[in-house]
Simulated scan of single mutants.
Amino acid sequence: MGGYHRGERAVQERAGFARRAGQARGAIGNTVPDVAVAFLAQQPHLVAGATDERGRIWATQLTGEPGFLTVPGPHTLRIGALPAPEDPLAPLLAGAGSGSGSGSGLGSGPVPVGLIGIEPATRRRMRMNGRAVRDGDGLRVELDQVISNCPKYIQKRDHHRPAASTPLPRKAVDSTELSPAQQQTLRAADTFFIATASDRGDTDASHRGGNPGFVQVLSPRLLRWPDYAGNAMFLTLGNLELNPAAGLFVPVWETGTSLHLTGSARTVWDEEEAARTSGAQRLVEFEITAVREVASASPLRWSAPAYSRFNPPTAA
């Protein structure tokens, strides 16, 4: 069980998976295997999560031509891209490790980041957690954890880049709650990414997937989703046990729009409540404090999904 922090161990014990989590510990390393080096080199995007200067956690997406992700050493990832200015993590990551901070933490040293590379076409993914510094026109991340993940709940999609000669302008809209259109986006979502951090600031990014409707919009500021059977590590819920701050990135696959949410999350352990949602072992509730929607944030466009056979049914 070495390597799990106390929040992860507490959740593993409460869920009754402590022994299985100990066996799964072998999937966590701190070097990038050769097969993963090749995998990363083929990807046009990467999801990242980090905590901004106000203590809010955000998740976002970085994109580039395949080859923008390289592994110059077994413990290092080079990302040949930075967030666009409209991105909620742009100020933080653009100044990472620059030493230009003035007491806020912004730019004052390496930034803890959680990363996930995902290839929907093959349902492959890998998680990497470490500390990022600015490196020219991109980031260099010294990795603390490299985590193998199973393909459950990933919807199969293919991507392309539009042939338009002039990219559409990005446009950011901020609010403190979800608009009716954003609520509909979440109700129709089959995928989102969640970033969390431990009480020490170590950050993780994870994937969540299911059939449309698996994200429940309880109000303009409150979401709920089922926690399905997984790898028993409980890295996300373990972080939430110690630090409720969380950030969500919801991609709108067809248009390239990014929906970013930040707030706090908690695990709902009530068995009767969970039993009302198909496949749920427990529930997670997320209270929104800020919303940023960025139109045309990504140059990638994706095909309609082929849903994972592991997805539990959702209510009509």
Rank of each mutant, 00 (worst) to 15 (best):
G73L: 04
S298V: 15
P120K: 02
R200G: 11
A275F: 13
A24R: 03
L40Y: 11
S165H: 12
V146Y: 00
R54L: 08
V111R: 02
T262Q: 15
P72G: 14
A295H: 10
Y307S: 08
T166Y: 13
F249R: 02
L46R: 10
H260I: 09
H5P: 03
L237C: 13
S278N: 15
M1K: 09
A290K: 03
S165D: 08
L300W: 04
V47L: 14
R170T: 10
G201H: 05
A189W: 01
G2M: 15
R221V: 11
A36W: 04
Y228W: 05
V284Y: 00
P88T: 06
V47M: 12
D227N: 12
L235Q: 00
S108D: 15
D135R: 07
I147P: 00
P151A: 06
D174C: 07
A181P: 04
A163S: 15
P66D: 12
I288H: 05
A81H: 07
V11T: 10
N211W: 09
F68S: 01
G2I: 13
V268Q: 05
A315G: 05
W253Q: 05
E285H: 01
R187E: 13
S102A: 15
R125A: 00
R131N: 12
I288Q: 00
R221K: 11
D204M: 13
E177F: 02
T51I: 10
R292E: 01
N311H: 06
V71C: 10
A274S: 15
V111Q: 01
G263V: 09
D204Y: 13
D135M: 08
A245H: 09
S219L: 13
S206A: 14
E285M: 01
P226Q: 02
T76V: 12
L178I: 02
G213H: 03
D204T: 12
L223F: 04
S219R: 15
Y228A: 05
E119G: 00
